[in-house]
Structure formats: structure tokens, C-alpha cells
């Protein structure tokens, strides 16, 4: 028992660290977000989200994040089905191949897409060589959505694959024995069973898409501002930490909402890729 007490004491460094670098910083965000430059209490920083320029960037971020999440899901679901259907010995390796790009530096990957998508970039060179119409999507919201899908697609593939590959084959066989055709099996058996993975995937794509400022900066040509860009500029360019913190509080509300939805639907942690 004495040794147990000693062991518990060992958590002290981490507890101190967590208080100093996780809890206090979060309190700081709320402190700055709810005060003005003189230190007086105000909710003006938070409510300034209603200002047209801020609201527009939040709306655009929500919209683009939503579009990317839906497209990611439509792309990843069939893939997860295909991958879990491949009953190979090395299924670990297959998943590994699909999530490997995720470890490549995020900025390098996005930079590469910039190169590929440019008006005189690689893709357009190939297209014009084949006498096909060229793409002009760089510096448009479409390019941002493209970048979001590219960067966050693995976050959707992984949880979907995790739940679908765990579905008992006997359940699928039972459905077939009871006369369900493949479409019915998909929509009435596999789909409901994969809800935890879907929810988890949605959060893992939606939150980073909603909060990004890098993708929009690099592929949107710094003219299209998402809420992440606005917050980033308040901190690094305008040095208006109070306003930046206030807008971050708004952003956190959206993050918390999606976290709550995830925990409610994903109680068993089945689709958990975290």
C-alpha cells in the first residue's frame, strides 16, 4: 500500500504540467475573450461574431467544412466497404497504405496541390496536352474544399474501416438467408451498424476543416477568409488578442457541440480512431 502511495505521487509532474499548459491556457482564452483591452468584462468580443465580416467567414467555414465532410464521407464509405471486403492476411498493411500520406508534412502536401492545381500547373499541362479543357480552381473556394478533402480524407477512411471490418460476417449471411438483396443488406444492416464510425469520421473531418487557416491561405490565395484565418490574423497581425480569443470561444462552442454528438453516438468507442 505504501508503494501505491509512492506511485500516485509520480503523477504530480504531469498534473502540474497539465494545469500549467492545458488548463491555465484555456482559462486565458476565456479571460482574454471576455475582457476588453483595459481588462474590463465584456461580451463584445464574442458577440462580434455577428458582425458581417466575421459572420461571413464563419458561414463560409461552416459551409466549406460541411461540403468537404459530405464528399469525404461519400468517397470513404465505398472505399471502407471495399477494404474490409478484401479478406487478406495483411489487412493491417492495406490500411497503413491509405493512412501513410497523413504523416507527410501537412504543409508540404498542400503545397504540392498548389503546384498541381495552378493555372499553368501539372494537371493543366496534362489536360491541355490531351486537348481537354483546363481547370481554373486555384484561389477559389473549390480549391479550398479540394484541399480539405485531400488532407482529411484519411480521418474518414480510418474510423469507417474500423467499424465495417468488425461487423460479424454471420450477420451479413443471416440478412442474405432471410432474403435481403445486396442493396437491402447495405442500407438496412451495414449502414446502421456503421453509425459510430460515420459519426466519428464526421467529427474528425469537420472540426479540422472548420478551424483550418492553412488550407484556405495556401489554396485560396489569401483572399478568401475562413473563421480560422480571421482568428489567426487577429493574433499574428492585428495583435487584438481579446477579439481573437472571443472568436475562438465561438469556435470552441462548435467544437464542443460536435464532441457531444460524437460521445452520444459513439459510447462504445467503436469508431474511435483517436
Amino acid at each position: 500500500m505504501k508503494s501505491n502511495k509512492f506511485i500516485k505521487l509520480l503523477s504530480a509532474p504531469y498534473i502540474i504540467w497539465a494545469i500549467a499548459f492545458i488548463i491555465i491556457p484555456l482559462i486565458m482564452v476565456f479571460y482574454y475573450g471576455l475582457t476588453d483591452k483595459t481588462g474590463a468584462f465584456t461580451i463584445a468580443n464574442v458577440t462580434s461574431i455577428a458582425k458581417p465580416e466575421h459572420f461571413k467567414s464563419l458561414y463560409l467555414a461552416l459551409l466549406l467544412a460541411l461540403i468537404s465532410t459530405v464528399i469525404c464521407m461519400l468517397l470513404a464509405y465505398p472505399l471502407a466497404l471495399i477494404l474490409s471486403g478484401m479478406k487478406t492476411k495483411n489487412d493491417h498493411l492495406i490500411v497503413f497504405i491509405f493512412i501513410l500520406p497523413m504523416w507527410m508534412n501537412f504543409l508540404l502536401r498542400t503545397m504540392a496541390w498548389q503546384t498541381l492545381l495552378e493555372n499553368d500547373g501539372v494537371i493543366n499541362n496534362i489536360l491541355s496536352f490531351l486537348h481537354l479543357p483546363t481547370l481554373h480552381i486555384i484561389n477559389t473556394p473549390a480549391a479550398i474544399v479540394f484541399g480539405m478533402i485531400y488532407n482529411f480524407l484519411p480521418f474518414m477512411i480510418l474510423p469507417l474501416y474500423n467499424v465495417i471490418s468488425k461487423i460479424d460476417v454471420n450477420v451479413l449471411n443471416a440478412a442474405r438467408d432471410l432474403g435481403a438483396n445486396p442493396a437491402q443488406t447495405l442500407f438496412r444492416v451495414i449502414l446502421p451498424l456503421s453509425v459510430p464510425g460515420i459519426i466519428s469520421g464526421i467529427t474528425m473531418v469537420f472540426v479540422p476543416s472548420l478551424t483550418t487557416f492553412v488550407v484556405s491561405e495556401m489554396l485560396g490565395g489569401s483572399k478568401i477568409l475562413l473563421i480560422g484565418n480571421v482568428i489567426e490574423q487577429e493574433f499574428t497581425q492585428n495583435s487584438n488578442w481579446n477579439l481573437g480569443s472571443g472568436l475562438s470561444i465561438v469556435l470552441m462552442i462548435f467544437i464542443i457541440i460536435s464532441m457531444v454528438i460524437t460521445t452520444v453516438y459513439d459510447k462504445e468507442g467503436e469508431g474511435n480512431a483517436l
Binding site: A20, P25, V29, V207, F213, E232, M252, M259
Partner: peptide
């Protein structure tokens, strides 16, 4: 409780983690 705190940096958006630390260092 401690696990919950541990999860904060993993679940929170990086931009929020980043600015919260920036504010700490500034303060």
C-alpha cells in the same frame, strides 16, 4: 478527470491550443 484533461489537446482544434499557449506565454 485526468484522462479528460489529457484528451483536451487531442480533441481541441490545434488553432485553439496554439492561441491558448500563445496567450499563456504572453501573459
Amino acid at each position: 478527470t485526468l484522462m479528460g484533461v489529457t484528451n483536451i489537446p487531442m480533441l481541441n482544434a490545434d488553432i485553439v491550443t496554439g492561441i491558448s499557449l500563445m496567450l499563456l506565454f504572453l501573459f
